[in-house]
Simulated scan of single mutants.
Amino acid sequence: MRIPFQRSVLVALVASATLLQACSEQPEPAREDNKAAAPAAPEQHAAHEAEAPKASGITRSTAPEGARVFFVSPEDGATVSSPVTVEFGLEGMDVAPAGTDQENSGHHHLLIDLDEKPAMDMPLPATEHVVHFGKGQTSTTLELEPGEHTLQLLLGDWRHIPHDPAVMSREITITVE
């Protein structure tokens, strides 16, 4: 079934609002190295979005040149045991919780064993294969079944929409014993 363009934009905006609420329902205690910034005023949202590129009717935040996301650990090709600790790295941008419209910032999404990359012009779905870190987390511990797994990081803006250009790590493969 094909959804008309205007309705698809509405569906995307409702999904984005739902994700923002879900990621902010239980605030993480503030730490010195990861304080949450206050959300920007509505007029700041409009000014920031006016400068960003659009795709499929949704405005995407612009990523600065040279911004990159990467795995601190584990390394590509590593053999690990479960639970697996995964540390995220980011250069050229800041980490900010979902819902915080701060220029040159975003929050991490971990793509696990994903067969097909998500749409870059829509809010990222929250599934077992697309894990959101909307509180601004920079690491996680995963319970993974034994075997080979692929991991990839993708930064999303305050609405869970990838930046333009997308700030995405290269895919790594790990083996869980």
Results as ranks from 00 to 15, higher is better:
Leu144Trp: 04
Glu28Gly: 15
Ala41Phe: 11
Thr100Gly: 08
Asp76Glu: 04
Ala119Met: 12
Phe5Cys: 07
Leu124Gly: 01
Lys117Cys: 01
Cys23Phe: 13
Ser105Gly: 08
Pro165Leu: 13
Pro83Ala: 02
Asp101Phe: 11
Gly92Val: 05
Pro165Lys: 11
Ile161His: 03
Asp76Ile: 00
Gly156Glu: 08
Phe70Thr: 00
Leu111Pro: 03
Asp157Ile: 03
Leu110Arg: 04
Pro74Val: 00
Asp101Ser: 14
Ala38Cys: 05
His149Asp: 04
Pro125Met: 00
Leu153Gly: 01
Thr175Gly: 08
Ala15Ser: 05
Ala40Tyr: 02
Glu28Tyr: 13
Glu116Leu: 09
Met1Asn: 02
Leu142Lys: 03
Asn104Glu: 09
Asp33Tyr: 14
Pro118Met: 04
Pro4Glu: 00
Glu28Met: 14
Thr62Val: 04
Met93Arg: 12
Leu90Lys: 02
Ala46Ile: 13
Arg159Gly: 05
Glu103Pro: 14
Pro97Thr: 13
His132Val: 10
Arg159Cys: 09
Ser73Leu: 01
Leu20Asp: 07
Asp164Phe: 14
Gly92Gln: 12
Glu75Met: 13
Leu124Tyr: 07
His45Asn: 08
Cys23Gly: 06
Ala166Arg: 10
Val176Ser: 09
Gly106Gln: 15
Arg159Ser: 04
Asn34Ala: 15
Glu91Gly: 05
Gln44Gly: 09
Val86Pro: 01
Ala17Lys: 00
Ser61Ile: 01
Ser61Arg: 03
Glu51Ile: 02
Ser24Tyr: 15
Thr175Tyr: 08
Val95Leu: 12
Thr175His: 08
Asp76Thr: 06
His109Asp: 14
Pro97Met: 07
Thr85Trp: 09
Leu111Trp: 09
Thr173Phe: 04
Glu28Pro: 06
Asp101Leu: 15
Ala98Gly: 06
His45Trp: 15
Leu142Ala: 03
Gly99His: 03
Ala30Leu: 15
His149Ser: 13
Glu51Val: 03
Ala41Gln: 08
Gly89Ile: 00
Gly92His: 02
Asp157Pro: 07
Asp94Thr: 13
Glu32Trp: 14
Pro118Ala: 06
Leu144Pro: 10
Val86Thr: 01
Ala47Glu: 13
Pro165Cys: 09
Gln102Glu: 15
Asp76Cys: 00
Glu128Trp: 09
Ala98Cys: 13
Glu148Ile: 01
Glu177Thr: 10
Thr140Lys: 01
Ala55Val: 07
His129Asn: 06
Ala30Asn: 11
Phe5Lys: 08
His129Phe: 10
Glu87Arg: 06
Pro4Gln: 05
Glu75Arg: 12
Glu32Tyr: 13
Pro74Asn: 07
Gly156Leu: 03
Gln152Glu: 12
Glu171Gly: 11
Val167Arg: 11
Asn34Val: 04
Thr175Cys: 02
Glu116Met: 05
Ala37Asn: 10
Glu148His: 04
Ala40Gln: 06
Gly136Ala: 07
Leu90His: 06
Ile112Gln: 07
Glu75Ala: 15
Asp121Phe: 01
Phe5Asn: 02
Ala46Gln: 09
Thr100Trp: 03
Val167Ala: 02
Phe88Asn: 07
Pro29Ile: 15
Ala38Leu: 09
Thr141Phe: 05
Glu87Asp: 11
Gly156Val: 05
Gly99Cys: 07
Arg31Ile: 13
Ile112Leu: 14
